[in-house]
Amino acid sequence: MSQSIISVENVTKSVISNDNQLSILKGISFNIMEGESIAIMGTSGAGKSTLMGLLAGLDQPTSGSITLLDSTISSMDDEQRAKIRSESIGFVFQNFLLIPSLTALQNVTLPMLLRGNEDQKNNELKAKALLEKVGLSGRETHLPTQLSGGEQQRVALARAFVTQPKILFADEPTGNLDQQTAQNIIELLFAMNTEQGTTLVLITHDAELAKRCQRTLIINDGQCQESV
């Protein structure tokens, strides 16, 4: 029996908007097991992104606790959470978020640099291997503006996997891509995920895509329920 890698207990999140308190998440609890792939679905504004932000330690819950890899991140400060992210978490974003002034290769080596891994030669070797895997060999020195959307997302995939993260968060990774390209990216994402045994948390609107995950959580009116 595999262990729980993320555990969420009675988490709430509310924000102040126009002097009114707005509850986005109203007491959510669930567990995610190591190596699992899980899709989070919900209508726009349901709180999917808020939940992902909390799970990844980008933000703090109003109440409740979140434990990630045996650390209670909900009681950690910014810097401690950043350290956990750099060591164990990878991201793929809807709008790729590559650094425009860095080449494809440099964008991929960046997480290793942030981790304190300063052997740049080794970093580049790893990054090259991953770029080859996502089908971008020969494009290492291209800047993001010289790449198409699909290519940029491939670079983002390589960047996400280069540190062999324990958990990968993907926020609508195909939201900005055409269908064919989206399909390729998803294939790649799942292939690499399986290969590295990464836990995958995927936010999506796409029910077909959600079906490829082992579990699906649906957020609705600040509550979450497991879809069966």
Partner: peptide
Amino acid sequence: SMLKSMGSSR
């Protein structure tokens, strides 16, 4: 923000 999300420290 992106660098921070990837875990860069202040």
